[in-house]
């Protein structure tokens, strides 16, 4: 069903108004970077045990880190990603966070 936007006196469609506050809503991502010391088995273990990812997914993410240099391992609110990055630092992984696309 198509709705015709309501046009106020100024002629701007209400649908054009920004929804909520985009900066607060924008998801963040937790990145893990490749490094020459952490072993592949250890990184897989961290992804599986901390995030609870199935082994296949944990291995896929580990290989992405290893072959492309980094991987986004989680996405969500800034607060959630800070918690994840801190946990990654606790495990000795090289992790950063940035706003998602």
């Amino acid at each position: 069903m198509t709705q015709t936007p309501v046009l106020p006196a100024g002629g701007v469609a209400l649908d054009d108004a920004p929804r909520e506050t985009p900066t607060a809503q924008r998801p963040w991502v937790c990145l893990v970077w490749d490094d020459p010391v952490n072993t592949m088995t250890y990184v897989t273990y961290v992804f599986a045990s901390y995030f609870g990812y199935p082994k296949a997914k944990a291995e896929r993410l580990m290989l992405r880190v290893h072959t492309t240099g980094k991987a986004a391992v989680a996405a969500g609110s800034r607060e959630e990603m800070e918690t994840h990055v801190t946990a990654m630092h606790g495990y000795g992984l090289w992790s950063t966070m940035e706003p998602g696309e």
């Binding site: 630092h89 000795g92 090289w94 950063t96 966070m97 940035e98």
Partner: peptide, 9 residues
């Protein structure tokens, strides 16, 4: 620096 790396650029 390696044990406490930066989280933000």
């Amino acid at each position: 620096t390696r044990l406490f790396p930066p989280a933000y650029s």
